[in-house]
Amino acid sequence: MTRTADINGITIGYDDEGVGPAFVLVHGHPFDRSMWWPQVPVLTAEGYRVITADLRGYGRSTVVPGLTTLETFARDTFALIDHLGIDEEVVLGGLSMGGQIVMECWRLFPERIAGLVLADTFPQGETPEGRAHRNRVADELLATGMSGYAAANLPKMMASYNVPAMPRVAEHVHAMMLDTSPEGAAAALRGRAERPDYQKLLTTVTVPTLIVVGRDDEFTPVSDAELMHRLIPGSMLTVVDGAGHLPNLEQPAAFNAALHAFLDQ
Score class of each variant (00 low, 15 high):
M177N: 01
Y161G: 06
N135D: 05
L116V: 06
R190Q: 01
V137T: 14
L141F: 02
H133R: 15
A138S: 02
E111T: 15
A132M: 10
G191W: 04
G148A: 06
F122H: 09
T204N: 14
W106S: 07
V102F: 06
H174C: 04
H174Y: 14
P182E: 01
A170Q: 03
F122D: 10
F122Q: 04
V117I: 13
E104V: 13
K200Y: 13
E111R: 15
G148Q: 06
M157S: 09
A165K: 03
T204L: 13
A188D: 08
E111P: 10
R112C: 06
R195Q: 06
V169P: 08
E104P: 10
P208Y: 13
P167F: 04
T180P: 05
Q124N: 14
V207F: 07
L141M: 00
G145N: 01
A165T: 05
E126Y: 08
L202S: 09
H174E: 07
D197I: 05
A185Q: 08
R168H: 12
D197Y: 13
T127I: 11
V117M: 15
E129N: 15
E183T: 09
E111H: 15
A185Y: 05
R195I: 03
G125L: 11
V173Q: 02
A151D: 10
D120S: 11
P164Q: 00
E194I: 02
V173Y: 01
H172L: 11
G115F: 14
L116T: 03
R136I: 07
V207H: 04
Y161A: 07
D197G: 02
M158Y: 04
G115S: 03
H174T: 00
Y149N: 02
L178A: 03
M158L: 00
E194T: 12
E129R: 15
G145L: 06
G191P: 00
L108C: 08
I101S: 02
N162K: 01
E111N: 13
P164K: 07
G145E: 01
E140L: 07
P196V: 14
V205N: 03
P208E: 07
S96D: 14
P128E: 08
C105M: 05
F122Y: 11
E129P: 12
A188Q: 04
R112Y: 14
E140N: 08
F109G: 09
L202F: 09
L210W: 07
A152Y: 04
P128Q: 10
Y161T: 06
H133V: 11
T209G: 03
V117R: 10
Y198H: 13
R112F: 11
H174K: 09
L202E: 14
N153S: 14
N153P: 01
T127V: 05
G145F: 05
A165V: 01
T209K: 02
G184Y: 03
T121K: 01
Q100L: 14
S181N: 08
Q124H: 15
C105E: 03
V102Y: 02
M157Y: 10
P128Y: 12
G130P: 11
L202Y: 11
L210T: 00
V205R: 10
H133I: 12
